[in-house]
């Protein structure tokens, strides 16, 4: 057996190690952190905003703000939790700005708020293709109250634990569980309307 075969692959550096290197001006550490968390940050931002361009802006603002204000992070939670919290805030800011510039049409008063409207596409097949599935989920998530959507997205798309979601949003674990319960119930109701027009 050669010596090369005995070499053990190096474990990837921890977030703390990368942050320490970043603090010393190591730009490669920033690249590593970016590659490590860009995907999950994008999924969270996209599910909160529903638009690719807005989600990209939120991810960019999130990374810049999270790394600029590392003193507020202080290692009290994981870097991922801190980053997703900042990305969430950036997404909410972008969503508010968008709301001010757009006039969101209100649902007609005789329309049931818990069902999709007649204009919403519904597939005839029982089998939902991926694009339909994503469209249905985007539409349903957009109808959740912001607090429920944030909690659900951080837990499901951000893959944060209840404790981490509570830390990220500054709420109790009980509130996280309660919001998740109502979010799931509402989502199921909304998605059932999509499935059975």
């Amino acid at each position: 057996m050669t010596l090369a075969a005995l070499t053990i692959p190096l474990a990837p550096p921890t977030d703390d190690a990368l942050l320490a290197r970043f603090a010393q001006g190591d730009r490669a550490a920033l690249d590593d952190l970016f590659r490590r968390y860009r995907g999950v940050a994008y999924r969270v931002a996209y599910r909160l905003l529903g638009r690719e361009a807005d989600a990209l802006d939120a991810v960019q603002d999130g990374f810049v703000n999270a790394l600029t204000h590392l003193d507020r992070f202080g290692g009290r939670s994981s870097f991922k939790t801190w980053l997703l919290r900042v990305v969430c805030n950036a997404a909410l800011d972008i969503g508010r700005q968008r709301k001010r510039h757009e006039r969101v049409p209100q649902a007609p008063r005789d329309a049931s708020p818990d069902r999709f409207g007649a204009g919403d596409p519904a597939p005839a097949d029982a089998e939902l293709v991926r694009a339909d599935l994503r469209r249905a989920i985007d539409a349903a998530l957009a109808r959740l109250p912001v607090a429920q959507r944030q909690t659900f997205v951080l837990h499901v798309e951000g893959e944060l634990t209840y404790r981490e979601v509570a830390d990220a949003l500054g709420i109790s674990i009980g509130t996280v569980m309660s919001r998740l319960f109502y979010a799931r119930r509402r989502l199921k109701d909304l998605l059932a309307g999509y499935r059975q027009p």
Binding site: R43, A55, R130, R134, I137
Partner: peptide, 16 residues
């Protein structure tokens, strides 16, 4: 997806 099933969540992932 509503239940947070990992396979369902992965299947509905937005394009990166």
């Amino acid at each position: 997806y509503a239940e947070g099933d990992r396979d369902a969540v992965d299947a509905a992932r937005p394009d990166e």
